[in-house]
């Protein structure tokens, strides 16, 4: 249980963060943290598919955006209940993931990457031209959501600290669900497919069905992430669908180390926080520096933070140089 202590510390810090907000430090850090939580949910979904199933999607912005728009449209036109918004986001992104997964999973490796990229670009241009979705301007003025269920709990989420705890709880729940999936028989089969697809097939597993299911789950996670961010900002725009979001997801996952769940979560936090620091410090030059940091990361540690942590751990354990593989 060596990991229990750091995990408890992180949780404690996260729970205590809103206490000092507004007095010790700016409220803005809560917004930044909420953005991190939304991306954490998206990254968990990406890692289930890419890190465990071995299918690299370059189109997760499409599910992120779809969840965001579904939540935004629900809040705007149907009900202020955040649960209804989340439910609609889940259903719509699941439906989209079902179709895209069905079509894409016939391809593998780099062709799968391009196919998901093509679908995502298609969705981006579609949203950009649909008038009912606000076209290029997006949808501003989404009313603040509330925890309202059938007349009970009429707590509005428009206060930043309240939304913060709500998003933290959702991200925590998403992590527990993802860990459960990874530990289940289905999760093991996914890893088996990633390691050797042919062998998994010979053992009698329906590989295509497993991967489609993983794609569906992954798309739903991404949709929930988008829904969280959209209901917090009260605004959606086609930038949710932009291909750079898909690229960012890949960067975060790789920086953190794929196939570890915790790694991509840390990657999301790192990229978002660093991006904020750099952009306030370097003005418009920050993306240049960010790009150079990415380049350095991949050159010096191709396995990401998880690899660095593992190496540090190996040093600390002072194990014999050659451990059993």
């Amino acid at each position: 249980m060596r990991r229990a202590l750091p995990a408890a510390l992180v949780l404690l810090v996260l729970l205590a963060l809103p206490i000092g907000a507004g007095s010790l430090y700016s409220d803005f850090y809560l917004s930044l943290a909420i953005r991190v939580f939304a991306f954490v949910i998206l990254l968990l979904g990406f890692d289930l598919l890419a890190g465990y199933g071995g299918l690299i999607s370059f189109g997760h912005a499409m599910f992120f955006g779809t969840g965001a728009y579904a939540a935004a449209l629900t809040l705007k036109h149907l009900t202020p209940s955040v649960w209804a918004a989340l439910a609609v986001a889940v259903v719509v992104s699941a439906a989209l993931a079902l179709v895209v997964g069905f079509l894409s999973i016939r391809a593998r490796e780099i062709y799968f990457v391009f196919l998901t990229f093509a679908f995502a670009q298609f969705a981006y241009h579609a949203v950009n031209s649909w008038e009912w979705a606000g076209a290029a301007n997006g949808l501003p003025g989404i009313p603040p959501p509330s925890l309202w269920i059938a007349g009970r709990l009429p707590v509005d989420l428009d206060r930043r600290a309240v939304f913060y705890y709500f998003a933290l709880a959702l991200a925590g729940a998403a992590f527990l669900v993802a860990r459960r999936i990874v530990g289940s028989a289905f999760g093991r089969v996914l890893v088996g497919i990633r390691e050797n697809e042919e062998r998994a097939r010979f053992l009698g597993y329906d590989v295509t069905r497993c991967l489609r299911r993983a794609f569906l789950i992954s798309g739903v996670f991404a949709g929930v992430g988008g829904a969280v961010l959209a209901s917090f900002h009260g605004f959606v725009a086609p930038t949710f669908y932009h291909w750079s979001v898909s690229g960012e997801v890949l960067l975060m996952a790789l920086l953190g180390g794929m196939g570890t769940l915790v790694g991509p979560m840390a990657g999301a936090a790192f990229v978002i926080v660093l991006g904020d620091i750099l952009s306030s410090w370097l003005a418009e030059r920050w993306l240049l520096v960010m790009g150079l940091i990415y380049v350095a990361c991949v050159l010096f540690s191709p396995t990401g933070f998880a690899g660095i942590a593992r190496r540090l751990g190996a040093l600390r354990d002072a194990a014999p140089a050659e451990r059993a593989p």
């Binding site: 690299i56 490796e109 780099i110 990457v113 690229g247 890949l250 960067l251 790789l254 418009e284 030059r285 993306l287 240049l288 960010m290 790009g291 150079l292 990415y294 380049v295 991949v298 050159l299 191709p302």
Partner: peptide, 27 residues
């Protein structure tokens, strides 16, 4: 240094480089 590794690292590297180049052009 990255030849022979998982193609993902090269995709990631070149993606990062394209970010660097596009910002260089802007500057």
């Amino acid at each position: 240094p990255l030849y022979g590794l998982n193609p993902l690292y090269q995709l990631f590297l070149t993606f990062a480089l394209s970010l660097v180049f596009s910002n260089l052009v802007l500057l």
